[in-house]
């Protein structure tokens, strides 16, 4: 997969997106035929009209042509309607068994992701990174904490709005392992453009392993640097918004950072997660993502380095 097609409706990676693409090609072919036919008719009409000095005085013999054209239009519409309804039927989440339930909550401008489990201590929480096992149907429960957002992984399925005060159900399935980008599709304010996440479809074994890691509490800091970083985290304002499982920080305002070191991106899939980006993001997130709710943090450089080291260690 090329890097440019990892958020692309025309490169389906699962059965649902496949269905939609099927409908799409059918529609495209029919519509192209119609467009070409209209223009051929128009060319014939113009050619005839150009050769004439005066308009016809006869009554047009057109009613039959009109009837035929309208009948053809109706027929094609019916064909498209049937394909559309069949497609919608195939996409229906009703009555389909799933292996896993994931709750996705939209926030201005990031995604909170929880892997639900009957045991409450087994619930894994992460942000902006959705892992799914390949070849399995997964149920997504959508909710919003503030305004309307829209959940959209073009390579896997169409979109579904996240509406405050209302939960909706969506089922997705990835058949090809890979990395797909997804982006909020309903205008949600200043950083609507930078409210993305990535979907990682991986073999079941890898997925289960990843999930087990996610369920665990955060790793204890090992080096002195990391220990200092943890202190910085807990003693400054970080803990007022973020949570790290296993420490005293437990706020749910911002993304959960328990395993932030393992994530591939920062700021809702805006920049790759590496040391430089992470430092810059902590210092001034608004520089990368103007309007972001995370305030700038003018930390002492050493504190900043230690904090970054600590966060990077949270795999």
């Amino acid at each position: 997969m090329t890097s440019s097609s990892y958020q692309d409706a025309l490169h389906p990676a699962g059965p649902y997106a496949n269905t939609i693409v099927g409908v799409w090609w059918f529609y495209l072919i029919v519509c192209t035929i119609v467009f070409v036919a209209v223009w051929i008719a128009l060319f014939i009409a113009i050619r005839r009209a150009r050769r004439r000095v005066e308009p016809d005085t006869l009554a047009p013999r057109a009613p039959r042509a009109m009837m035929l054209a309208l009948a053809a239009t109706t027929g094609l519409l019916l064909a498209m309607l049937v394909s559309s309804i069949a497609g919608a039927r195939a996409l229906s989440p009703q009555g389909k068994a799933v292996t896993r339930e994931i709750q996705v909550t939209g926030h201005q401008w990031w995604w909170d992701i929880q892997y639900l489990d009957e045991r409450s201590d087994h619930i894994a929480q992460t942000a902006n990174e959705l892992h799914v096992p390949v070849g399995e149907r997964v149920r997504i429960i959508l909710a919003s904490s503030d305004v309307i957002h829209s959940f959209w992984v073009p390579n896997l399925h169409g979109k579904r709005d996240l509406i405050p005060g209302q939960k909706s159900i969506f089922v997705i399935q990835a058949d090809k392992a890979g990395l797909y980008r997804a982006q909020c599709a309903e205008f949600c304010g200043l950083q609507h453009a930078k409210m993305a996440f990535i979907v990682i479809a991986e073999p079941k074994h890898d997925f289960e392993q990843w999930l087990a890691t996610m369920r665990a509490s955060a790793a204890q800091p090992k080096t002195a640097d990391e220990q200092r970083g943890q202190q910085v985290f807990l003693s400054t304002s970080c803990g007022m918004c973020h949570a790290i499982k296993g420490t005293s920080a437990g706020s749910r305002v911002g993304p959960d950072l328990t395993h932030v070191g393992s994530r591939r991106t920062l700021g809702a899939a805006v920049i790759p997660n590496n040391r430089g980006n992470l430092s810059g993001w902590i210092a001034d997130a608004g520089g990368v993502k103007p309007g972001v709710l995370m305030p700038p943090n003018p930390l002492d450089p050493d504190d900043l380095h230690a904090l970054v080291a600590y966060l990077e260690s949270l795999k």
Partner: peptide, 8 residues
């Protein structure tokens, strides 16, 4: 107007 296409 087609729901599957519209969702995408």
């Amino acid at each position: 107007a087609s729901t599957p296409l519209d969702w995408q």
